[in-house]
Amino acid sequence: MEAIKDKKNLQVVINAGWCKSCGICIDLCPKGALGRDNRDKAVWQYPDKCIRCGLCELRCPDLAITLQEAEEEE
């Protein structure tokens, strides 16, 4: 994480196919940047609040969350 200079370039990408809606990422996000979609899956709802700390990625039991640079997005 330290190697990346401009954290604002990072996006929280959530793989809805892998997410099991446990809510851990939402509950433990220090800034309340995550929410749920209409299927109860986690979504990066408030990017403005996000400080790109990466705790959601670290703690996602489904390995469904990735912080990646915007260009990397498929």
Binding site: W18, K20, C22, G23, C60, P61, L63
Partner: peptide, 22 residues
């Protein structure tokens, strides 16, 4: 990861996936 087996079989919120990731 052997991604073709995902999503994994553990229950929602099970800690085993977190340990695997670490």
């Amino acid at each position: 990861l052997r991604q073709r087996f995902f999503p994994q079989l553990w229950c929602a919120g099970c800690g085993h996936g977190q340990i695997m990731a670490s």
